[in-house]
Amino acid sequence: MSKNRVSRRQFLNYTLTGVGGFMAAGMLMPMVRFAVDPVLQAAGESDFIPTKQKVAEITETPTRVDYTYEQQDAWYTSEVTGTAWVYKDDKGEIVALSPVCKHLGCVVDWNTDKSNPDHFYCPCHGGLYTKDGTNVPGTPPVASLDVFPYKEKDGFLYLGKAEPRKEA
């Protein structure tokens, strides 16, 4: 028999401390997790939506780029398709324009009006925008087309949320 025998009193003390420790940890751990949670959340990444457009294949002619994302409408989630007009400007920089007319929200098309080639044309009320998205005076729209912030990742184009263009 060893010298330090565990007495009944000691045994009960050890067990109670152990069980109490478990209970305290069970209560504290979720609390700590909740407190830390905002820090652990992935930041910013989800704001950019991937498209199927390869950055290397973007030309100087505006092309339609479709992308899909999930839109949450209260408890109903639906898949929504969005469109952007994407091209490279003279300096080789990518420009991604929103196709939504600033007049009443129709969808504009590139180069479809025969009397105004190389313009964005809105079929609803004849709104015109130049290639860089500036509205042509004398047509109904009062502002330039919105611009998407973009990112390049693994050779593909990622689009953010369209923003009104800052006046130059």
Partner: peptide, 13 residues
Amino acid sequence: LLSVQLERQFRGR
């Protein structure tokens, strides 16, 4: 389905 798409294109007019 068609009318939803159509509305999206021409919603201003």
